[in-house]
Design a protein around this nucleic acid. Structure first.
Lengths: 288, 288
DNA sequence: ACCGGCGTTCCGGCCGACGGAAGTGCCCTG
DNA sequence: CAGGGCACTTCCGTCGGCCGGAACGCCGGT
């Protein structure tokens, strides 16, 4: 069973040695049509909602005619739609498909009432995040009109090491992912950001032991956050529920009891066995 | 400019039950790899969140080996992820991309506060819908815990002719779309469902004239709804904001004033010129 | 142990994707 | 008004990689 690394990892040219003397290394970038189509779709992001054909061609590195054909087929399939004269954006069809993801929009639908519960209790920014590779992606955000807008835009990709929600996800990630993060560069955002691998290991162990992660000033100077795990059908951690607020609004760890209830409720709805029955020792009902 | 019908139309290969042993190009029904990849993705829906490889192969009509290759590439690109041993579901990567759609998740993000405003005022199911082809798709739904669950699941596809929100979208759709719907079969859900094309034309004209659509008992016997248009940057109708509730909870048209404010606010945030300045006739320029 | 289903791998043929080049319409400019 | 630049669209010959039938592990059930 060959498990393909789910990250194409940029440009692994080494797989095709074939050192033909006349091979042009520049344009030898032949990948499968499926991957090309995905690359075209990947051009779009919450920060780049609308692109022209030329922009797509440049972003993907595809020739104009090729980009034109692929985009045309994506439009025919409803994945993209034209907006205006020269411009494309992601179509509703793709949103429908994405809505089926149990880690994305589907999870958002299920989780919404629980986020509301947390919001009712805290009146602060409530977030639900999942892990994708070595990054964290927010799938849902609930922020009242009067709460501080610390973070914006669902779908933004962030580091796993700088927020409470991220640390929860990293602490329960597979070992290989953790090692990958620990060996990679740990970017510093503030003076409090943890950048020492060994120190981070200690933090992660603590997160596993206590069942929550609280940070203060690690991403921005006056922001603090707290996250707790949300578990799925196999009791593995599928998401992290957290609150982000300005420092001083509350002690981070005081948020833990508020988060635990909704997190357990959500885990139960997701089919987590450990959340199925209310155990007497709720705070450490699950191994690790 | 060739406008491809955006519906690939199921499976036309059942037409060759007699595979002659000669050169009959039964496999000539080949579509482009891009379209194949989209067909694979389109297998997933909110009602079919997890599929095995065999299920995908059957659903798309692709041979196993072909389906295996395409699915593998989609997994490599992050569009699909494995769940368990035999099973795939839509990946977060696709949700990120979909989050950039101004007609989908992006619209949902923007619209949420306005939906909340309507909910605060009505305590009923609040919906935001857009049109895709001759169907309506809900992009956001807000229903309180205690409100009647009349409709479920964002991303579900519905008819344009049976709800207030749908009628608004249809009334402001391009003429060709309206004709297509009017000439097609008009499915009857209840005894009150409008199925006569001429009668529907009158209804649509009334919707355009009054600026809202109210229905009662057209989809389900004891359900009523009301919808108003939401306009975009070109002042064209991009979405429909509506409320669905049990009959008797309120007069449908009494919901109109409640809907108009948030709808105008949302339109303004989307850049609609007509909502830019508060017109004299408008009874409330700011959301409730 | 047998078996049936499912997923995976392999390989040769063939056909449709590929992309350079030419064509079209539009807008801005001199 | 002619000219030129830009963005998009179409065309067509070539050939490389997709295609899918067939064969092969791997389980789980009986």
């Amino acid at each position: 069973m060959v498990h393909v690394s789910h990250r194409p990892a940029g440009r692994p040219d080494a797989t095709s040695p074939a050192p033909r003397s006349d091979v042009v290394p520049l344009a030898s970038r032949r990948d499968s049509p499926t991957q090309r189509a995905l690359r075209v779709l990947a051009c779009f992001s919450p920060t780049r909602r609308e692109l022209s054909l030329t922009q797509i061609a440049v972003a993907t590195g595809l020739p104009m005619s090729t980009a034109h054909r692929i985009v045309g087929e994506l439009v025919g399939g409803g994945a993209l739609v034209r907006s205006g004269k020269s411009g494309y954006h992601v179509g509703i069809r793709l949103c429908e498909i994405a809505a089926s993801s149990p880690h994305g929009t589907g999870l958002r639908e299920i989780s919404w009432p629980y986020l509301e519960d947390v919001y009712e209790a805290t009146r602060e920014n409530v977030l639900l995040a999942v892990r994708d590779g070595v990054d964290m992606v927010y799938v849902a955000r609930l922020s009242g009109r009067d709460s501080v807008p610390v973070l914006r835009d669902v779908g933004r990709r962030r580091s796993l090491t700088t927020t409470g929600t991220g640390l929860v996800l990293l602490a329960h990630a597979p070992t290989e992912v953790q090692e990958q993060v620990l060996h990679g560069p740990l970017r510093r955002y503030t003076s409090k950001t943890v950048t020492d691998p060994d120190e981070l290991r200690v933090v992660l162990a603590e997160v596993r032991r206590t069942g929550y992660a609280a940070t203060e000033g690690t991403l921005a100077p006056r922001a603090m956050g707290c996250g707790v795990p949300v578990r799925g059908a196999n009791d593995e951690v599928v998401a992290s529920l957290g609150v982000v607020a300005h420092s001083g609004a509350a002690q981070p760890r005081m948020l833990v009891p508020v988060l635990m209830g909704p997190a357990r409720g959500l885990s139960r709805e997701l089919g987590a066995p450990s959340a199925r029955r209310s155990l007497p020792g709720t705070r450490r009902s699950c191994p690790v």
